[in-house]
């Protein structure tokens, strides 16, 4: 069970409520699509409340261990807890919103 993301306005200096980490393997077409899709969804539904950290596992494969990454692209919701993961190119917006437990803005 997860807690819906808080929708209160963020004060200056506060860390973003949604801290996402995107794992990719090089600048492939899929990784670029994944980043673009994720950013679009976040801008739509989490504007001003999120940050995305991109980790390229071809450069730092050891970082895959921390979040127990099995396949890339994978996005990990570090905050708010609990940690959630979605694998794929994030072309299905609904699946992403459900996976990250984000309340759609127009829902």
């Amino acid at each position: 069970m997860s807690v819906p993301a808080p929708r209160t306005a963020r004060k200056a200096g506060d860390p973003p409520a949604f801290q996402l980490r995107l794992y990719v393997a090089g600048q492939t077409a899929k990784s670029l699509d994944a980043f673009a899709n994720l950013k679009r969804i976040c801008e739509t539904h989490l504007a001003g409340q999120y940050c995305i950290e991109v980790i390229d596992l071809t450069k730092t494969p050891q970082l895959a261990a921390g979040d127990q990454i099995l396949a890339v692209p994978t996005v990990v919701r570090r905050l708010p807890e609990p940690i959630k993961k979605i694998i794929g190119d994030f072309s299905n917006e609904e699946r992403v919103l459900v996976g990250l437990d984000v309340q759609p803005i127009n829902a």
Partner: peptide
């Protein structure tokens, strides 16, 4: 599912 649908680039 992601692998089957061709959304995955690489495996760790």
């Amino acid at each position: 599912r992601a692998i089957r649908s061709g959304e995955v680039d690489a495996l760790v």
